[in-house]
Simulated assay, not measured.
Amino acid sequence: MQKALAMLEAVAYLGAGVTAKQIAAHTQVPPATAYRMLNYLVADGFLARTPDLSGFALGRRTSELAYAATDTEPVRTVAQVLDAMRAETRHGLYLMSFRGGALRAIDIDPDHEVVSASTITRNPHAHAVGKLLLAYRPRCLDDLELRSMTAHTLVDGLALHAELARVLATELSFENEESRVGRAALAVPVRGAGSEVVGGLCVQGIAGRLSPNNDRLVGFLRAGADELCGLV
């Protein structure tokens, strides 16, 4: 029981998408034991697998326990927040984690084609959510090769640093045909239980239909990021 509780605490501390290997290391439980207990916790609903099956997140029954303990409305899950947002927009919407200084997909829009996390990781300077990572995790700039993906990709170091300064100042990242011709994206930071930026919420669509000057869309993203605070 103590090990099971330690694993729940590890997922809550490390964030949604944490892997079995990371949980085992954090709790100092042998990997084989950790894998077995994680499967039990998933089967009982205390944990849930992330959509790409590579990691874990807190499950429905954990939220129910939190509700019973606080006697307040239960906190919505990541999936519930994003499902509600997707019902209000025609654009693609996805959520990425920055924990550990690496991009990891938490929730990918099933109805829209999105750029894979591995592609963004290789070319973060060309993606809205990748620019967020570079702005809030500047060490990721070390040894970054500024490859050109389209004619619009920022490949000048000074121009990129100026862009990242704007991202920090506005807490808004914009990409216009920098990773793919005909595609644009907006992204805003998502914070943990404290003030640390732990991920990015991104909306993508056809170039010309997304703009950082669209107050309604930017407000929509920021409201979603507020709801996701502490869940990633």
Rank of each mutant, 00 (worst) to 15 (best):
M1W: 03
Q2I: 11
A4D: 11
A12L: 14
Y13V: 09
L14G: 02
G15R: 10
V18R: 09
T19W: 08
K21P: 00
K21Y: 08
Q22N: 11
A25Y: 01
T27E: 05
V29C: 13
P30M: 07
P31L: 14
A34W: 10
Y35Q: 14
L41E: 09
V42Q: 06
A43C: 02
G45W: 12
F46R: 13
A48N: 09
A48G: 08
D52R: 13
R61G: 00
E64M: 11
Y67T: 14
A68E: 10
E73N: 11
E73Q: 14
V75D: 11
R76A: 13
A79G: 12
Q80M: 11
Q80V: 04
V81R: 07
V81T: 12
L82G: 08
M85K: 13
A87D: 10
E88Y: 03
E88V: 04
H91T: 00
G92H: 10
L93V: 02
Y94R: 08
Y94G: 02
Y94T: 03
F98C: 04
G101A: 05
A105E: 14
P110W: 07
P110I: 00
P110A: 07
D111G: 10
S116V: 01
A117V: 08
R122H: 13
H125D: 05
L133T: 05
L134E: 07
L134G: 11
R137G: 01
C140P: 00
L144C: 05
L144N: 03
L146R: 05
L146F: 08
T150C: 05
A151P: 00
L154P: 06
V155I: 13
G157M: 04
A159M: 14
A162K: 14
A162G: 15
L164K: 09
A165I: 03
R166P: 04
V167D: 10
L172S: 01
N176S: 14
E177R: 02
S179E: 12
V181H: 06
G182K: 03
L186E: 06
L186Y: 03
A187F: 04
V190R: 04
G192L: 08
A193V: 15
G194T: 15
S195T: 13
V197R: 01
V197P: 01
G200N: 06
G200V: 02
C202G: 01
Q204Y: 09
G208T: 09
S211A: 10
N214M: 02
G219K: 07
L221W: 04
D226N: 09
E227I: 00
G230H: 08
G230K: 07
G230W: 08
